[in-house]
Amino acid sequence: MATDICLQLGKRIKSLRRARGWRQIDLAAHAELSKTHICDLELGRREIGLRALERIAAALDTQPSELLKAIKH
């Protein structure tokens, strides 16, 4: 189910963000996305686009594939 996938990815993003000591607004600024976008992604309310995935990964100093590893089939 898509929601499960979105929740898993959102938890991974949130975990990496918190490990840096960042608030959602900090990640949003580094990724050039809105805080609402980050919030919705972390809560699994929004499916991530490829460009947003790339921006978030770069902001967290990782690769998009590392973010996607959190998804269990």
Rank of each mutant, 00 (worst) to 15 (best):
I5Q: 10
I56M: 08
Q24A: 10
I48N: 10
D40C: 10
G10M: 00
I5H: 08
D40I: 05
R20T: 09
H37L: 03
Q8H: 06
K69S: 14
I25F: 02
K35G: 06
T36W: 03
L41K: 01
L7Q: 10
Q24W: 05
I56S: 10
Q24V: 03
R20A: 09
L43T: 14
K35F: 04
G49K: 12
R55A: 15
L43Y: 12
M1D: 04
C39Q: 10
R17F: 07
G44A: 10
E32F: 03
Q24N: 09
T62R: 14
A31M: 03
R51P: 06
S15C: 08
R18L: 15
S34Y: 06
R45D: 05
G10F: 01
I38M: 03
L68V: 10
R20L: 11
A31Y: 04
I48K: 08
I38P: 02
Q24D: 04
T62I: 15
I25C: 08
R18C: 13
L16Q: 09
I48G: 07
L60P: 06
K35P: 06
S65A: 15
A31D: 01
Q63P: 08
I13F: 04
L43A: 14
R23Y: 05
G21S: 07
A31P: 00
L60S: 08
A31S: 08
C6N: 12
A57T: 04
C6W: 10
D40T: 11
A28W: 00
K14C: 04
G10K: 00
H37N: 09
R51L: 14
I56P: 02
D40Q: 14
R45T: 01
R55E: 13
L53Y: 06
H37S: 09
A19F: 08
L53N: 03
C6S: 12
K69I: 07
D26T: 04
A28S: 08
R17N: 06
R46E: 01
L9A: 01
S34R: 05
C39S: 15
L16G: 03
I5Y: 02
M1T: 07
K14Q: 13
Q24P: 03
R18V: 15
A52S: 15
I5L: 12
E54Q: 13
A52W: 07
H73I: 14
A19T: 11
L9R: 01
I5W: 07
I71Q: 05
T36M: 12
A31R: 01
S34D: 11
R55F: 11
L33P: 00
D4H: 12
H37V: 03
D4Q: 13
R18T: 14
W22P: 02
L50K: 09
R55D: 11
K69M: 12
L43P: 01
L50A: 15
R17W: 05
A70D: 08
K72R: 15
W22I: 05
A2D: 12
T36V: 12
D40K: 09
D26M: 00
E54N: 11
E42Q: 08
H73W: 11
R12V: 02
L60A: 10
R12C: 05
R18G: 00
E54I: 06
I13W: 00
L50T: 15
L41V: 02
G49N: 08
R51M: 13
A28C: 07
